[in-house]
Design a protein around this nucleic acid. Structure first.
Lengths: 238, 238
DNA sequence: CCAGCCGAAATTGTATGCAATCCAGGCGGG
DNA sequence: CCCGCCTGGATTGCATACAATTTCGGCTGG
């Protein structure tokens, strides 16, 4: 498992190593470097980060709360492997929450925020042009960051945390059920949303966001597993 | 539907003691037996439940994720003491999420669900008539359970978890900023919502829920702390 | 050849020990 | 008399040791 391929030459803060490991693992999961179902051995992760299992367990527990890993008693932690039903719930939740966030963001967006959005859009464009798995990962990441930036602008820390969880889980779902290898988020959709925000049209931004989510979900292949319980059971192993 | 199990006389399962402690502490916080700001000493809690600090720490970390306790590095865990701004965010989140939940619930509510609601309403009525702090606590609890039952009926596990967090934090907020000693939730509001659900009128249920939330928040005294930073700082101590 | 059992190795769950940090109270200087 | 420093106790952060459980290999019997 190639967890540490980046350099931690200067750990930004030596404080709270558990949080650092948590974020590192989360990035790896969201970027799909760690496939759903992958076992996260406590001792192994501890060795990689040079900490004791105590710290690793704290990080894994945190990720379990976010729904990114699933822990089974006496069996350990695994990168989450959401079922089609869970996938639908993730997107249903986003459809419920994100339009409201867009309306709130439209109310309090500043020119500086708009500039941040544009910078993000620029990154997305650049990454869309590049090739290779690394660019693809960065693109997925940037795409999610757009939605997080939106929640950040809205100014509600609780909703921001909910969105962090939903965006991360969406990435897992797309990794599992994405039909096309295409971008997880249409770049044009994002640009249109920013335009609506800049115009202060919260309702339009909300509507665009809603159809954007529909667009993402439409690219998934969430066939019912009814009657396929055995196959599903086999798939959800590892 | 196992929303909250109140009897801890006989722990149903000895498995996962951390989860048991977590739920016990959460009940105590939501019922306001543990005041906001109370320090939760690891060793003390451990002695109380006859477990090691390891298990207590896991429970406290879980509660910290729910926003019910706040941990400060090298200082320990404290029952959360939400600021007026956090309080507003809690209710803003509920206003955003709960109407959608009501619509979803109206779509898939069953007669059995309605019966559960009615039973809950009956409990609330009974508790409203009783006196004493114990009845008051039970009433607060039942009031929150109504909203959780609604989320449960809606059938989205993710939103249910979000609502669990929001309802619990609402209880903290009401404990801190509630103006009247009156019921935290108007009982009639709940009854009207159930009627709308039974009629399959999701929009009406959503609208009733929205005004219900407004009603709850209107009873709070969330004066701005701008210019009162010092007093606020003093208050948020313990 | 295969199913089922059994024991060793691996892995997780929990308790405990130790170092680091924080807090309270006393003491000395101003 | 008040302010700042310092030291002792208490508490948390982390590592490690041990117990409980699972997993996986081989072995035996059919």
């Amino acid at each position: 498992m190639t967890l540490v391929d980046q350099t931690f030459a200067v750990p930004p803060v030596a404080e709270d190593r558990a949080a650092m490991i948590r974020e590192y693992l989360r990035d790896a999961i969201v970027d799909r470097r760690l496939a759903p179902g992958t076992k996260l051995n406590e001792a192994e992760v501890g060795t990689l980060f040079d900490v004791s299992r105590t710290v690793v367990r704290a990080a894994l527990q945190a990720l379990a709360f976010e729904g990114l890993v699933k822990t089974e008693r006496n069996r350990g932690a695994f990168v989450a492997n959401p079922s089609p039903d869970e996938a639908r719930q993730v997107f249903a939740s986003r459809r419920l929450i994100e339009p409201g966030i867009a309306r709130a963001a439209a109310e309090c967006v500043t020119p500086k925020d708009i500039a941040s959005f544009r910078a993000r859009l620029h990154d997305e464009s650049r990454l869309l042009g590049e090739r290779g798995p690394s660019a693809r990962r960065a693109e997925i990441h940037a795409s999610g960051d757009f939605h997080l930036l939106l929640a950040n602008v809205a100014g509600n820390a609780i909703l921001l945390r909910f969105m962090e969880e939903l965006v991360a889980r969406s990435s897992l779902v797309i990794a599992l059920y994405g039909r096309s290898g295409a971008s997880s988020c249409g770049h044009n959709d994002h640009a249109n949303i920013v335009n609506a925000l800049e115009a202060g049209d919260g309702d339009k931004a909300a509507q665009l966001l809603l159809s954007h989510i529909d667009h993402i979900e439409a690219d998934l292949d969430l066939r019912s597993t009814t009657g396929l319980a055995l196959a599903e059971a086999l798939n959800t192993q590892d």
